[in-house]
Amino acid sequence: MAGVAGKKSSLTWAVQISVALLVLLWLFPTVGLFVSSFRTADQISASGWWAALFSSEQSEVFRTLDPDEHRVLDGNGFRVDGTIFADTPLNIQAWGVSSRDIAAYQPGETAEMKGGETLTLRRDGSYTWRGSDEQLAGRGQRVFVTAQVPPEFTLDNYATILFSGSGQDNMAKAFFNTLTVTIPATIIPIVIAAFAAYALAWMEFPGRALLIAAIVGLLVVPLQLALIPLLRLHLGIGIGKGYIGAWLAHTAFGMPLAVYLLRNYMAGLPRDIIENAKVDGATDFQIFTRIIIPLSFPALASFAIFQFLWTWNDLLVAKVFLIDATGSTTVMTNQIVELLGTRGGNWEILATAAFVSIAVPLGVFFVMQRYLVRGLLAGSVK
């Protein structure tokens, strides 16, 4: 029995495997968004992000040169010679002249069309188009090409998202709007909750236990339940549609957890430190600012992480308290919803917007994650 306390659990391997699976489940979508944000629309539709470093088979539509300008006499008819590639030639695998069968011919084969018209396309994109005067007129012949396209990465998606838009389409403005909402909505509840937590942890006053119980009860109140009353209150005092209303709403919804978390941490601090400070003549404010706050930094940082992530990723509160048809207060989550509505097929734009949206929360989490576990375990060990 002497070695039971220090015996390693036989289920350690299961815990490690579970943690590894959770990390992979979180990592794969993030890496996928990052890779897709640098790919073109054709490549995203042709292959998954995991194949971004390899050539992919894509189908594209090209047209031959204008026959009225490039045709030459060829026996009893006319001929047009040229190439369908204006830029870098592709490695053609198959081609066709009809959308019903885009891979009807192999490179070098000749397509027989109506009236004796023919088209021969070679692997490098060069072609010979023969026909009569009436056939080789008007627009060029449409050619469907299936080719191996090398991997390509571009910064155009970020340029489109961050610099090309205006108003409702300006992701850069939405980025700074989100910072304008998130930073005050993270700082305000921390400041208020820190004072309240110290009072609930170390100051004696009537009704303290009931107040702590009420705060615990508020943790389970759904956010949606308070939206309408809070909006009516804000509209009544004139702050319903603006940053101040959003700050106060996020503060109100984040206060119960902030007070609960900080109070548990502060209550677990050594009592001797507080008592010695009072014996030396320190006031409660001096104890709070010079002793409690420095010792409570892990708890403050852990709540700051949660509040920042919740506020940054929020859409519901922004929809209710930041209603602005001009887009001057649009946040990034709402901007992405707008992109889904107007550019539902442009996956490269959506992937870039989503990655820009999660880049800041990822940075905040990785910088402050060492404080997260320490803050969450507050009071669990004496």
Rank of each mutant, 00 (worst) to 15 (best):
D68T: 10
W202P: 02
L200P: 12
A172E: 07
P89A: 11
A185W: 02
T178F: 03
W202T: 06
I161Y: 00
G167Y: 12
D124W: 01
T120C: 09
L155Y: 08
V97M: 10
Y127F: 08
G77K: 04
D74I: 04
P189D: 03
L162V: 09
P150A: 14
I190D: 04
F85M: 06
L90Q: 09
I187G: 07
V80S: 05
R139N: 10
I92A: 09
F175K: 12
L73Y: 08
G138D: 05
Y198G: 01
Q135K: 11
A137N: 13
L179R: 03
F144V: 04
T182S: 14
L200N: 06
Q148R: 14
A193R: 10
D101F: 00
T88C: 00
A137D: 11
T64K: 03
Y127V: 02
D66Y: 03
A159N: 14
L136A: 07
L119T: 06
S166A: 13
K173H: 15
D81T: 14
Q148I: 09
A185Q: 04
S132C: 03
T186Q: 02
D169Q: 15
I187M: 12
Q135S: 13
T186S: 12
V191M: 14
T154V: 11
R139W: 05
R130C: 07
A104I: 01
A194E: 00
I188M: 13
A159F: 10
E117V: 04
E204A: 10
P184F: 11
A103H: 06
Q168P: 01
A147H: 04
N177D: 12
E57R: 10
P151W: 05
G125P: 01
A197S: 12
V149F: 10
Y198A: 03
R142S: 09
I102T: 15
V61S: 11
V61K: 10
Q135D: 06
Q58Y: 05
E57F: 00
M113K: 12
D124L: 04
D169I: 06
R79N: 04
F195V: 14
M171T: 13
L119A: 08
E57N: 08
I92G: 10
I102E: 14
A86T: 15
Y105R: 08
F175E: 12
R130P: 00
R139A: 11
D156M: 01
L121I: 13
G115Y: 01
A194H: 01
A159P: 00
G96F: 05
I92P: 04
I84K: 06
G138Q: 04
F176Q: 06
D101R: 11
V97W: 01
N170E: 06
S126L: 05
V80G: 05
R122G: 00
F78N: 03
G115D: 06
M203F: 08
Q141V: 04
D169V: 09
P89E: 09
F175W: 13
E109L: 09
T182L: 06
R63Q: 12
D81H: 09
P150H: 11
Q58C: 02
R63M: 05
G167H: 14
F163I: 12
T146W: 03
V181R: 09
A196F: 07
G96T: 02
D156Y: 00
R139Q: 11
L162H: 02
A174T: 05
L155D: 03
A94H: 04
A174C: 07
G125S: 11
S98A: 15
